[in-house]
Design a protein around this nucleic acid. Structure first.
Lengths: 215, 215
DNA sequence: AGATAAAAGTAAACAGTGTCAACAATTGTG
DNA sequence: CACAATTGTTGACACTGTTTACTTTTATCT
């Protein structure tokens, strides 16, 4: 499985940069950021190790690109969770209920992705990711919004609906994000790894409840 | 700085296991879990690389031991933060105020340690740390309580003081822990690395407020 | 006290890693 | 069509974790 299937016939690869990111993403999916090792990535792309240096300055530059890809998938998971609401019971909940549900969906999508794709999730937040990266197109989901932007949007909607006071808006993303991120990390990688599915679910629900109440 | 000062004269080291953990802890302090590399650890202990295998099955076994040491220091930081209250204004706050302050101190100590010793903090929660490790003596602080136990104690006190309903007690450590842990991770390692001291402090205060309110 | 077994350190080697410098094939451009 | 830039390759280097075999010291048992 380490050899690529079509051993390229042309000298040039054609789209190596993309291929490297794809292979790196696959490795990250299987084993997290530490599993994306340069030589294996190039091996999977059917190319010599040093070929990577024509497209990335560094291993860490490659990892950074993979990180953006992982964030993009996270955004997709969050959007998916959001779109599950407004189809069915859009009008049933009031304006405020819907705003609340959207924020909750952001958190639920975040947590679901972390547990469904722990390798990618850990890679998304590995090594020197910056808040400025939240504005980079490569880390956006299907609708062109990054995970951080999706959270911001949800919080803005909460203000518009009159649920969240305007003066509590600034900095709100930090605490909401922290809560959800912490649970995700503890559950997939940390000391709460031992929790079974039920416990995880109830902890997740309880946490989102805390965010709604205490934000 | 890589060579040790007293190049041991005896064939036996005498206390190599401890020395390896100490050197590993120092490396972790400087550069996090990835910086604790077996060969450098043995180098600092003035011993051959393979000597480590007489005391640890693995590199990861060594890292695990270092992890416990890091947790112990975290516990110390938390206790320190707690002891800063009951000295001065112990009686001024009521029973409930004091219970609240103690929980807040747990979180504040956690966050302070994460920012003061990011390398150790990351090491404390690296690679396969389990909840069961929270019962191991080596990870306890000066008063013999591990970080997790300190949190549990604070929550119990909150119940005793009548602040936290008994039926909300189970699982409370998970959400409280998650919130604080998430902020710590985002700030020292993640996308919130860019925040300056003021922003961090206000985010921390806001977060602890959320935990109190929403737990 | 002396043989002998266990414990603790050393030596040499191996596969695997990231990266650098020099070289070769391909493609684009004047 | 010459020639320069781009893209891959080769070979090497220092470094890592780990294994296997060996040596030196310490503890144990009669």
């Amino acid at each position: 499985m380490t050899q690529q299937s079509n051993p390229r016939t042309t000298y040039r690869h054609g789209d190596l940069r993309r291929a490297l990111i794809a292979a790196g993403t696959e490795l990250a999916r299987e084993g997290g950021p530490d599993a994306v090792v340069l030589r294996e990535v190039t091996r999977r792309a059917g190319v010599t190790p040093n070929a990577a240096y024509r497209h990335f300055a560094d291993k860490s530059a490659l990892l950074w690109a993979v990180s953006l890809a992982a964030q993009s998938r996270l955004a997709a998971a969050m959007e998916e969770e959001q779109s599950a609401i407004d189809d069915d019971d859009g009008a049933r909940l009031g304006n405020v209920g819907l705003a609340r549900a959207k924020l909750r969906a952001v958190g639920a999508g975040y947590l679901r992705f972390a547990q469904t794709e722990p390798g990618l999730f850990r890679t998304a937040f590995a090594n020197h990711i910056d808040l400025r990266d939240a504005a980079i197109e490569d880390s956006a989901g299907p609708h062109g919004r990054t995970p951080f932007q999706l959270l911001s949007d949800a919080l803005d909607a909460l203000v518009d609906a009159g649920v969240l006071p305007v003066d509590r808006r600034p900095g709100a993303e930090f605490v909401a994000w922290s809560a959800v991120h912490g649970l995700a990390m503890l559950v997939i990688d940390g000391p709460l790894r031992g929790l079974d599915a039920d416990q995880r679910l109830s902890a997740a629900g309880r946490l989102l409840e805390m965010v709604e109440k205490g934000i």
